[in-house]
């Protein structure tokens, strides 16, 4: 649900259209917008599940402070998707709890 026309802000600036691979499925995004905004525009609100109760979580502060929106981006876990710009071809995966490093089994995150 994008806000294409706006009475004060006018038409949405046109950006470069890119593709993100989200849990194996391609979604359209605009280059440079936060990953979480692209996901929301594509209708996806659940970004991850929690460790203890497996509850769904989504965007909460949109300012990079609450860490509810973290996902695994290009193999790196716990990336705040509300402040991380989308780039073409990014691989984004939901995570459970604090997630794990992908492709780098030897590196340990605290």
């Amino acid at each position: 649900m994008r806000v294409d026309v706006h009475p004060i802000l006018g038409n949405a600036p046109t950006g470069k259209s890119i593709i993100l691979l989200v849990d194996g499925r391609p979604i359209k995004a605009i280059e440079g917008e936060p990953i979480a905004a692209a996901l929301l525009a594509s209708g996806r609100r659940v970004l991850r599940h929690t460790a203890r109760h497996g509850e769904p979580r989504g965007l909460f502060c949109a300012l990079g402070r609450c860490t509810d929106c973290v996902m695994t981006v290009d193999g790196q876990p716990n990336v705040r998707t509300c402040v991380t710009p989308a780039r073409d071809g990014m691989v984004i995966e939901s995570q459970v709890g604090l997630g794990r490093w992908k492709h780098l089994p030897l590196e340990k995150e605290e």
Partner: peptide, 22 residues
């Protein structure tokens, strides 16, 4: 904690900066 509950500031950032409806 359900997705869809968010700060008013988050909603404002989404609509006015990123141009996406929460």
């Amino acid at each position: 904690t359900l997705p869809g509950v968010m700060g008013a500031g988050a909603a404002q950032t989404l609509i006015n900066i990123h141009r996406v409806l929460p």
